[in-house]
């Protein structure tokens, strides 16, 4: 059973058991423009909610992507090293950023569902 959550910082989380796959939303990739580099986190890195997990770089600027939850990185999307534009073309699919083991599933309760997120971006 998979469930998708959204954050106010324009990330999505696909949660299966205690593993979350995290990426940025289509709205976010549109705002950032063409991405040219992604600084990915190493597996095993422990993150607290709000830590900078990933830096995505467009032609023009670098932007931080924050950990939406406490947890530990289990994997990151190696395909982005050679093709960062995957985030532009498939933000919510092949352009995922990292997977993490969720430390406290209770933190999911503060996140939005799709309808809530759509209302958030207006």
């Amino acid at each position: 059973m998979t469930k998708t959550y959204y954050t106010e910082d324009h990330e999505w989380l696909r949660v299966e058991g205690d593993i979350a796959t995290v990426g940025i939303t289509d709205y976010a990739q549109e705002q950032l423009g063409d991405l040219v580099f992604v600084e990915l986190p190493e597996a095993g890195r422990k993150l607290a909610k709000g830590d900078v997990a990933v830096v995505v770089e467009s032609v023009k600027a670098a932007s931080d992507v924050y950990a939406p939850l406490d947890g530990e990185i289990t994997d990151s999307n190696a395909a982005l090293s050679s093709d960062p534009a995957l985030i532009n073309s498939a933000a919510t699919g092949d352009g995922w950023l990292w997977k993490m083991k969720i430390a406290n599933t209770g933190q999911l309760e503060g996140l939005m569902d799709e309808a809530g997120y759509n209302a958030h971006i207006g």
């Binding site: 423009g33 063409d34 467009s58 032609v59 023009k60 532009n88």
Partner: peptide, 11 residues
Amino acid sequence: LTYPAGVMKEH
């Protein structure tokens, strides 16, 4: 700043 084509295509 950009148009729908995006910075890469515009450039």
